[in-house]
């Protein structure tokens, strides 16, 4: 039996990964099981006979103490099947859906959940300053093109700033 591939489009924001999880889990309940993401294009396998719980994890990088293989192996041991990665930093995992399993989380205490949010926040901060640097570079010449770029950058900074701020609020809410 061949599984049919289907596509869906969604703009997902790094600081709302729980919403993305909810969305993927709702799709899986309908028989569409997430396989991979490229930018805004989600590819699914259709199979009405199964249902999964999806979770996202963010890891800044591997190599220092653990390789990606060891990371995936640890999650597999804990019952999580590795699905795919996005941008080398977001990793998608799933496990067969079980009734009343809201507690099937990757992060089971507020300290480690805050740690996850802080890692995402740090990535947003890096993107912010990298783009600030590019902006200065690209708009320094002025002119019409320079000014329209400036408008785009202001928008980008507003989005990144919002993300940073939202994550800060989440961290504050779960920290004692």
């Amino acid at each position: 039996m061949t599984t049919a591939k289907e596509k869906r489009y969604r703009l997902s924001l790094s600081w709302e990964h729980e919403k993305e999880e909810e969305w993927l889990n709702a799709r899986s309940a309908e028989g569409l099981h997430f396989k991979k993401l490229s930018l805004v294009k989600y590819t699914f396998d259709r199979d009405p006979s199964v249902r999964y719980t999806y979770r996202l994890d963010y890891q800044g990088g591997f190599g220092k103490t653990m390789s990606k293989e060891e990371y995936i192996e640890l999650y597999r041991d804990a019952g999580w099947e590795y699905v795919s990665s996005y941008g080398a930093m977001w990793h998608y995992f799933r496990r067969p859906y079980e009734e009343g399993e809201e507690a099937q989380l990757l992060y089971t205490d507020s300290e480690s959940l805050a740690g996850l949010y802080k890692r995402v926040q740090a990535m947003i901060a890096v993107m912010f300053f990298m783009n600030l640097f590019f902006m200065v570079f690209n708009t320094i010449r002025g002119g019409v093109l320079g000014y329209s770029l400036l408008v785009l950058y202001v928008f980008l900074f507003a989005v990144l700033g919002t993300g940073y701020f939202r994550l800060g609020k989440k961290i504050k809410r779960i920290s004692k």
Binding site: L74, Y75, D77, G79, L105, T108, S112
Partner: peptide, 30 residues
């Protein structure tokens, strides 16, 4: 022990109360 062994041991010692999620365990080990 390996990661999974640690998870099981924590759950056993705490009488099933402490379930360490994979993400929590991984970041703690690091």
């Amino acid at each position: 022990s390996h990661g999974y062994g640690i998870m099981q041991e924590a759950e056993r010692m705490s009488g099933g109360r402490v379930k360490i999620g994979a993400g929590t365990l991984y970041t703690a080990l690091n």
